[in-house]
Amino acid sequence: MSEALLEIRDLHLTMSSFDGLAHVLNGVDLTVRRGEVWGVVGESGCGKSLTGLSISRLVPTPPARYPQGSIRFEGEDLMRLAPHRMQALRGKRIGMIFQDPTTNLNPTVRIGEQLVDVALAAASHDPSLLDDATPQQFGRRRQARDLAARLLERVGIPDAQARLASYPHEFSGGMRQRVLIAMALIGRPDLLIADEPTTALDVSVQAQILKLIQSMVADHDIGVILITHNLGVVAETCTHVAVMYAGNVVETGPVAAVIERPAHPYTRALMAAIPMRDTPRGQLQGLPGVVPDLIRPPPGCRFAPRCDRATAECRARFPGTGPVAPGHAVACYHPVRQPKIADG
């Protein structure tokens, strides 16, 4: 087994607010290797996005604090890295894509200029980025421009050289998301963090973007963290999945194992809430209740108040994470065990 690209161990994150101290992340563990696409799922407010932002150290401190835990990127502890080195890592080795492709591009600057700026910034940490195709005598800006055009082509934007002169508003939502992906890929990142990259897009565009991310993994052997609330997206795109609830990773494993044999009651409840091909009208199972108040979280398992399998043990102590199958782990005292289920 290859060495881990990213290793998050027992990560805790607190946020201070008017109401008190919120325990937003409560011991998150996650290991991503090259070639893996990890889907991080859960309801809103479960800490999915904050996990992603923590890896890039983009959570403002204060109000946030990391009392415990480590994030290792190829063995280097990001929590102890000096700010300027972290910045270099962000521009170059860790790429990020966010949900809204509109607000992450400057509307008054041409696409090409924005990509060139990122390319030059990335090249300031790794000059070899620009030397690949264009000979040096053309100057760095020209090289950066060529690199930008090549990346736009790679993310499937036709006539890339000409589109460099376009402004963001001349692109559709899907095209803008492609530009942002191109931007995230400029520094040839080893890890790509995509936070709900297709939520604002149409299904047809979504399918294309997800294919694009998969081909990036196949071609460059990168690791991907795909944060989403859509289990369908996870089932079709990811190799692995981590289910988060109220700041904990409650179930992890290969996609096939988790989706075919969900062991945590929360994962099962999430899946039961998706309308299926043969769900009879009115028979969809909602999950009652809301994600708990993270300032005064319930003791023990945080899902216990909404769980129909909860016992006194669940309410007293948080269950440790244990395997239910090779590579498939769950944090639950009463995991659901069952044979493989037929397709629905």
């Binding site: 946020m15 607010s17 008017f18 919120a22 937003v24 809301v290 994600v291 108040d293 993270l294 005064r296």
Partner: peptide
């Protein structure tokens, strides 16, 4: 982070 407070309120 004010959203966190909504359910309690």
């Amino acid at each position: 982070m004010s959203k966190l407070a909504d359910p309690i309120a």
